[in-house]
Write a protein that binds this DNA or RNA. Structure first.
Length: 480
RNA sequence: CGGGGUGUGGCGCAGUUGGCAGCGCACCGCGUUUGGGACGCGGGGGCCAGCGGUUCGAGUCCGCUCACCCCGACCA
């Protein structure tokens, strides 16, 4: 704990792993590719959950819980779905010492089992829409794993809805993407780009997949949340049919949408610096840490009650506050520790401050002395702290947005694309290629089309790869 | 699955030609300290990943196995 982090510029991947471990977000589990989410990391996830859950409820969804184990045959009912997921399934073949008649898969996602249940529950247009979300865990047997970003087991929410019309399903799909967007930008201060996935990149079994894509500190893209319009694919596979107003049997239209603990990784890699984590105030497990400073016992007696009283006043305003009154660490050590943990705002209170009835405020997003404000009068402190947390939240978003925009470059040719992505940036250019051509680009450059952004330039152009007339621009980037 | 790396005290590591298993941090005790990762003195803590082999003697050499990490092909 008392060594410097590997700087991001030196080895970004190593920096990331060290931050996760040292900030006590997560640790390696005894099984390859699995992680333990530690209390500090889990609290962040709980705050993410609350922010999302509030939005899900506000848009009419209810939570429910479906089983972890799914009959193998369910996965096989939707052709694209099984093709997409079969390589990464964990399969249970023995239960209670007996070989099972039918293997069970540990859910990699729940479209199938929820589709099965929906077919039981949906009989009439009066039963629609069904708007259900599930918070849970899933397992995907990935070859290469990384804490939070890709683990064999991860935690997420998956929304599953059924609708009477294609239009309604599409509106739901888009609405939930907007919910993710609003959450990412306004709660996590992670600027994301909304767009649609190409055929090649869409969810296995979806008609259309929408995504929010974020740029990490190493300029790689991270798919941070997805919303899928499943059309009638799963309705047909699982026989989700209803009688419409004309007493005619119709297949329902379904959607699914998910956001996972991967988003914790997005927060780390969007905001973190060489001192460690920087957490957005709205989601931070601890928003304000108070570090009392004393030399002698008499000073401790003078300082600590003042610090505790301020903490109590801050808590009354609803802030998440901690007083670091541990006796066996020096103030300097504590400063570094809480910076590693990414606490947005630190309050330092020493004998000199108590004498002046003042405190020192230190912003995590502005390193060193630059980020400190000395002599803030005690009675003004709560208001100033609240205000400063808002400023930090805004500053994080602004900084991340500027970083992102500075690293997206318009390209008109394949040569330009290679140049841009070779330097690590994102390339944006007109696209009218096929899936095969897209695959070739990946082969040759390592980049994929992250999405066709909703925000499009005026007019049309020529495909950067094929020269064909193109209606849309696509975003190309290396991705996690 | 390929390529690379690492397994030695709780953590991070060193260990030369095969010859008493060490260092830093952490921990315990005492004292001095404390506004940007304090210091002194004393102390406790080890089947050297596992199995087998070579040898008078193996952390070290040989073989096998296992695990984890990193880099590539697949993916939220």
């Amino acid at each position: 704990m008392n060594q410097k982090l590997t700087p991001r510029s030196e080895n970004y991947s190593e920096w990331y792993t060290q931050v996760v471990l040292r900030a006590e977000m997560a640790d390696y589990a005894p099984v390859r590719g699995c992680m333990v989410v530690r209390p500090y990391g889990w609290t962040l996830w709980e705050n993410i959950q609350q922010a999302l859950d509030k939005r899900f409820k506000a848009t009419g969804h209810q939570n429910a819980a479906f089983p972890l184990l799914i009959p193998m045959s369910f996965l096989e009912k939707e052709k694209q779905h099984v093709e997409g997921f079969s390589p990464e399934l964990a399969v249970v073949t023995v239960g209670g010492g007996q070989t099972l008649e039918e293997p069970l898969v540990v859910r990699p996602t729940s479209e199938t089992i929820i589709g099965y249940m929906y077919s039981k529950w949906i009989k009439s247009y009066r039963d629609l829409p069904v708007l259900i979300n599930q918070w849970g865990n899933v397992v995907r047997w990935e070859m290469r794993t990384k804490l939070f970003l890709r683990t064999l087991e991860f935690y997420w929410q998956e929304g599953h809805t059924a609708h009477a019309t294609a239009e309604e399903a599409e509106a739901e799909t888009r609405q939930m993407l907007d919910v993710y967007y609003d959450f990412a930008v306004n709660e996590a201060a992670v600027p994301v780009i909304r767009g649609v996935k190409t055929e090649r990149e869409k969810f296995a079994g979806a008609e259309r997949s929408y995504t929010i894509e974020a740029m990490m500190g190493d300029k790689k893209a991270l798919q941070s949340g997805t919303s899928h319009n499943l059309g009638q694919n799963f309705a047909k596979a699982f026989d989700i049919q209803y009688l419409d107003e004309n007493n005619e049997l119709q297949y329902a239209w379904t959607t699914s949408w998910g956001l996972s603990t991967r988003f914790v990784g997005a927060i780390i890699m969007t905001h973190g610096d060489d001192q460690g984590l920087i957490l957005p105030p709205r989601l931070a497990p601890i928003q304000v840490v108070l570090v009392p400073i004393w030399k002698k016992a008499a000073e401790k007696e003078a300082v600590l009650p003042v610090a505790r009283e301020l903490a109590a006043r801050l808590k009354e305003t609803g802030l998440r506050v901690e007083v670091d009154d541990t006796d066996n660490r020096t103030p300097g050590w504590k400063f570094n520790y809480w910076e590693m943990k990414g606490v947005p705002l630190r309050v330092e209170i020493g004998p000199r401050d108590v004498a002046k009835k003042a405190v020192v405020l230190a912003r995590r997003d502005v390193p060193g002395r630059e980020g400190k404000i000395f002599g803030v009068p005690m009675e003004e402190a709560p208001a100033r702290i609240t205000q400063m947390l808002d400023e930090i939240q805004a500053a994080l978003l602004q900084r991340a947005t500027e970083f992102r925009d500075a690293n997206i470059h318009d390209v008109a040719s394949y040569e330009e694309l290679k140049e841009v992505v070779g330097a690590g940036g994102w390339a944006r250019g007109w696209w009218a290629g096929t899936s095969e051509e897209e695959a070739r680009i990946k082969e040759e450059t390592g980049v994929t089309i992250r999405c066709i952004p909703f925000e499009q330039p005026e007019g049309s152009g020529r495909c950067l790869y094929t020269g064909r007339p193109a209606e849309k621009v696509a975003l190309f980037a290396k991705a996690y």
